[in-house]
Write a protein that binds this DNA or RNA. Structure first.
Lengths: 130, 130
DNA sequence: TGAACCTTGACACGCCCGTGGTAAGGTTCA
DNA sequence: TGAACCTTACCACGGGCGTGTCAAGGTTCA
């Protein structure tokens, strides 16, 4: 057999048993269980534990962030909404001098503002409205 | 003038001026500035503020999460590393209950509700060796 | 000019995250 | 059988997040 107990896995992956349980609770790495309920870490889990450590240290992110990335790839609706939000990002053309941009933008805005002012109704954007 | 000041923007987007500054510091929405340094919120910013609110409440995420999504689309290396990590996911059980995060999320609130629901963790089907 | 706004900075507070520890009890194995 | 491991559940604690409020000072405008 080549599955390790939580303590053994912790030792060779440089996490603590406590953190291995925490990681599992975050839904990131869920090892199999023995009949008695013991966590069993196989080579794939060990590898992922090591790379997870590298991920969080190298990019200075938390488990919450990795968990969120997981949500992003599991929940299409969430991913879509996020995409839409960033797609609406007001990008100011870099090549245009700030002053120019400002005047151009203000012109555009004054027109849009008139519309926005007249078009108040926004009861409850049912969904995906961006 | 067609851009709104922070207070006006706060009022019509249902945030507080405090939060508008906070959102800006999070790098999510950075309004232009007047010559005197006043924040100027134009229609695009106002729209994004509204949709940001919807995003956050509808999916129950924080500004930190949105900020992380921003990092993901700005830093290719990070996105690649995350992709790689999830690609290495051991697909033994082949299905993952998408309600995983939900359990995780509800867990925090459940403490406030003083719920007592202890149950024996169901041992996985004869895991054997991995 | 003065009220009403804006700026940044700081203190505060409650909740959540990452982590450790410990207790009470079940499992493994020499 | 007993030591050493495992399980879950709880307490603790420093730091960060989301938010409000206040202070000291600059800007706008009727």
């Amino acid at each position: 057999m080549d599955a390790l107990t939580i303590q053994e896995a912790a030792e060779i992956t440089d996490w603590s048993p406590r953190m291995l349980r925490y990681i599992e609770r975050a839904g990131l790495i869920e090892p199999q269980r023995s009949d008695a309920g013991y966590r069993l870490y196989g080579p794939p889990e060990l590898q992922r534990l090591r790379t997870l450590r590298e991920l969080v240290t190298r990019f200075h992110i938390g488990l919450g962030e990795v968990g969120f990335a997981q949500r992003l790839r599991r929940e299409d609706e969430l991913a879509g909404a996020i995409d839409a939000w960033f797609a609406a990002e007001p990008r100011r053309p870099e090549h245009v001098p700030a002053a120019e941009w400002l005047r151009w933008e203000q012109d555009k805005h004054s027109r849009l503002l008139a519309l926005a002012g007249a078009h108040r109704p926004e009861p409850t954007p049912a969904a995906t409205n961006v």
